[in-house]
């Protein structure tokens, strides 16, 4: 998930983590770019109403499948 929108740090690497933090702190254009990517990522995947409608349709399908088998 993260490597699509932010900078990737290797596990157990505090040095790389620090390097990435400094990159964003030192480069306002990079910060702006990553900020836009975050907002786009949100709109693309996590809109709560879209997710809830998918959930409801899943429930309806399940209920009709279940009543057919009952």
């Amino acid at each position: 998930m993260i490597n699509r929108v932010g900078l990737l740090s290797e596990p157990d690497s505090p040095t790389l983590l620090a390097k990435n933090i400094l990159l964003i702190l030192d480069d306002s254009a990079l910060k702006e770019k990553l900020s836009l990517l975050s907002k786009e990522e949100y709109k693309k995947r996590y809109d709560s109403k879209t997710v809830a409608h998918s959930y409801i349709s899943l429930c309806h399908n399940l209920l009709s499948r279940h009543s057919r088998h009952a």
Binding site: I2, L7, I24, S38, K39, E41
Partner: peptide, 26 residues
């Protein structure tokens, strides 16, 4: 976040919403 055990943390989604750059781990 330096956590290596995440699936899909809600705090990350909140950070996306607010347009924050995110640093995570593999």
């Amino acid at each position: 976040s330096a956590s290596m055990t995440e699936v899909q943390p809600v705090s990350f989604i909140e950070a996306f919403f607010f347009g924050l750059p995110i640093i995570g781990t593999t």
